[in-house]
Design a protein around this nucleic acid. Structure first.
Lengths: 250, 250
DNA sequence: GGGGGAATCTGGATCGTACCAATGACATAC
DNA sequence: GTATGTCATTGGTACGATCCAGATTCCCCC
């Protein structure tokens, strides 16, 4: 049955828990799901845009918008005149996505967190944007200073959908370990990094002087089906943190 | 007159040499050009989508498509209800090994270098360590400030073995282009990055105040066969540079 | 004079329609 | 049998029109 996609889309439309009011995002998710369930194998074609829009009662523009995002992500490829195909994924190992805690432990250090906030609440508009969630959905917030051997290294503020991590107190040191227990450890992340001067409050928490150099990092962690499971904002001390990256041509 | 954009668009539409038949690409080009010419300063708003579509005789959908691409590139940002703004920061993907010059050209900017040093000499001990060369070997040194549209972006100090690039004056803007002529363009690089405070001399060169946030980056570029062809140390302005990275688990 | 709310900006989503251009399958001509 | 040309199908661009939702402005009322 090639209607797996239409069925999945309609299921998501009825689904009240994860209700996504935006048609194109709903369709995007539906396509991801059928790909993940191997209802359409890599290399196979999706139904044509016209067929899809007719079957789903959406305009072709909306269908195209949903598809465009997945093409951008690399999950689909399009060939003019031929069709839209599920990409045969080429996984490029770039930089490693590692857990702060596991990282430090691997270096023989003892990482530790001090929380000032560990709560559950409804997403704010910004969070809903970053995590791709509908308004009103619950999220877990973790706000903490991370230490190694009593030396503060970073301030971190993580937001995770409560659907993947219901209880903030499950996280002791490592968020990623807690996520792993729910089989929701991110496999890919996008990170944005900039140099900043640390403000008074940040500097105090990190035991440095106000106006020291710091790195401001925003990270969004994804599952392999593309769902966002983590949105973390952090400030690292510039004086003890080096980031190493391996760059590659294409 | 705020019609610089409309004028530029119409100019491109008439222009037969670079004639771009696709309206949305033409508009994208036009927007890039006006940004480049500082007709609209970073932080300033573009005309609204409705105004643009009316002024240019395009549909709003087409205008949105043109803008969407530039938002994706990081050249524009949009705020629902407020407007579309020229981005104040340069977003650089940290995972692609790209040439500074080619990068900025792709954004429609005109990169430029001002050299204070372009010389040949024997490797210092540190350089020989970084480049993996024997003592006494000759290297080319390039020390410069890199600009885009008369705005300094970074200070860069590159060291390249003279065996791959005998004459420092072969480099005009792009080191990588010069290396390519010798078939020695790096295909892989290791980069180390940290937040620093810019010193008085650096700040002066970069037109910022002493003690501003900056990024210190050290890069070693490798050929296929593992030879190091480039050792570059740079200081980027923290206020206009964002680095984005995609991370992956193994 | 200051606070609150309406009016009016902005971008965001979605519909329907039209035509162009690349592809590929099938039928036809040699 | 193979080459060629037609044609249905697919994605690509572009139009016009609505409605919704955030952001700002500004004015009126207390």
């Amino acid at each position: 049955m090639q209607n797996a996609l239409a069925d999945e889309y309609r299921r998501l439309s009825r689904d009240t828990t994860t209700h996504q009011p935006l048609a194109y995002l709903r369709l995007r998710r539906a396509i991801r799901n059928v790909i993940q369930h191997r209802d359409i194998e890599p290399g196979q074609t999706l139904p044509s845009e016209r067929d899809l829009s007719q079957a789903l009662g959406l305009s072709r523009v909306t269908v195209r918008k949903a598809i465009a995002g997945l093409v951008e992500e690399g999950l689909l490829t399009q060939r003019h005149g031929a069709g839209t195909f599920v990409a045969e994924r080429i996984v490029k190992p770039m930089s490693r996505l590692t857990s702060f805690t596991e990282d430090l432990r691997a270096r023989g250090l003892h990482p530790r967190s001090e929380f000032f906030e560990r709560s559950v609440g409804e997403v704010t508009p910004e969070e809903s944007m970053a995590l791709n969630l509908s308004p009103g959905v619950l999220v877990v917030r973790l706000h903490r200073v991370r230490y190694a051997e009593d030396e503060p290294l970073a301030i971190e503020r993580s937001v995770v959908p409560a659907s993947v991590l219901p209880d903030p107190h499950e996280v002791h040191d490592s968020l990623y370990e807690a996520l792993e227990h729910h089989n929701c450890r991110p496999v890919r992340a996008l990170q944005r990094l900039r140099a900043v001067l640390l403000g008074a409050r940040q500097a105090r928490l990190l035991h440095v002087t106000t106006g020291s150099a710091g790195l401001h990092i925003e990270r969004r962690g994804f599952l392999d089906d593309g769902r966002v499971v983590e949105f973390t904002t952090s400030w690292y001390r510039g004086d003890i943190y080096d980031f190493v990256a391996e760059l590659q041509t294409d």
